[in-house]
Simulated scan of single mutants.
Amino acid sequence: MKINQLAQYLEWVMKFAYLNILWLGFTLLGVGLFGFFPATMTSFILLKSFIVDGETEWTAQDFFSCYKKVFFRSNKLGCICWLILGSLGINFHIVLTSEEPLFIGLRIPILLAIIGTLSMLVYVFPISVYWGRSMYQTFFSAGCFALAFPVQTAKVLALLILIACIGFLFPMFLLFFSGSVSMYLVLKNYVLLQIKIDKQSME
């Protein structure tokens, strides 16, 4: 029994490594900037089939087929994310380097806004993949999730930071597992929260 479980775990490890390589490869295929978001959304879609339906057969052909379908939508979604983060980052840089009393007083509010934005962005791709909603509905729902589940969101952000640190210390982990494991944790967290909401709505 233990041997079978170990074999199953090793199979999952190999599949996650393979998915991570596909994610990195198709990110480079889109010249990085334009490939990152389609590759990320495609990975989320495949992980959704694994978490929700138990499907684990991920092929390069399936990845490429899905990649093409979500290319424009995912880049549109990603551009909005970058615009939001970019504007907050620029504002934070301005208030951080300025010695004006007004700007100094704005440092903490802008920092909190950045943390809140990151909390919201954690749910943007899972919601888009899970429901296929409009851009406005996706970001609105993501904001609601971040506000409704601050503890769970903080845990996910902490895990993502931990994974980034591990990847920095061990580049091989970055190559084979950082992306796929991060996306799995984010999506798994969202699915569990969605199940919790569905149960509460049925009571």
Rank of each mutant, 00 (worst) to 15 (best):
Val122Phe: 02
Trp82Thr: 12
Met183Tyr: 09
Leu187Ala: 10
Ala154Met: 05
Asp198Gln: 15
Lys69Asp: 13
Tyr136Asn: 11
Ala164Lys: 02
Leu6Gly: 11
Ser119Pro: 07
Val13Glu: 02
Tyr9Leu: 14
Ile104Ala: 13
Phe176Gln: 03
Met41Arg: 12
Leu10Asn: 10
Lys199His: 08
Val186Ser: 11
Leu88His: 01
Val95Cys: 05
Phe177Tyr: 11
Glu203Thr: 11
Ser141Glu: 12
Ser178Ala: 15
Cys165Gly: 01
Leu160Ser: 04
Lys15Arg: 14
Thr40Phe: 05
Ile3Asn: 11
Gly78His: 01
Ala146Lys: 04
Val181Ala: 05
Val191Arg: 01
Val13Asn: 00
Val95Asp: 05
Trp12Gln: 06
Met41Trp: 02
Ile197Ser: 06
Ile21His: 01
Gly132Val: 07
Gly179Gln: 07
Ile84Gly: 03
Met172Cys: 08
Phe63Trp: 03
Trp131Gly: 03
Phe92Arg: 01
Ile94Ser: 04
Val70Pro: 01
Phe44Thr: 07
Pro109Ala: 09
Lys76Leu: 14
Val191Gln: 07
Leu96Asn: 10
Ser141Trp: 05
Asp53Phe: 03
Trp12Met: 06
Arg73Glu: 08
Ser201Glu: 09
Val124Met: 04
Gln194Glu: 15
Ala17His: 03
Ser74Gly: 07
Asp198Leu: 12
Met183Cys: 09
Gly54Asn: 07
Ala142Val: 04
Phe140Asn: 13
Gly30Phe: 01
Thr27Asp: 08
Tyr18Ala: 07
Gln194Pro: 00
Tyr184Phe: 15
Met172Asn: 00
Leu185Asn: 06
Gly105Ala: 13
Ala39Cys: 11
Trp12Ala: 05
Ala113Val: 07
Phe63Arg: 04
Ile94Tyr: 09
Gly116Val: 11
Thr97Glu: 10
Val151Gly: 00
Ser180Ala: 15
Ile110Gln: 08
Asp53His: 09
Leu111Gly: 15
Trp12Asn: 11
Tyr9Asn: 11
Gln5Tyr: 11
Lys196Ala: 12
Lys68Cys: 03
Ser141Tyr: 07
Ala164Met: 08
Val191Ile: 15
Leu162Glu: 01
Gly30Pro: 08
Leu24Ile: 12
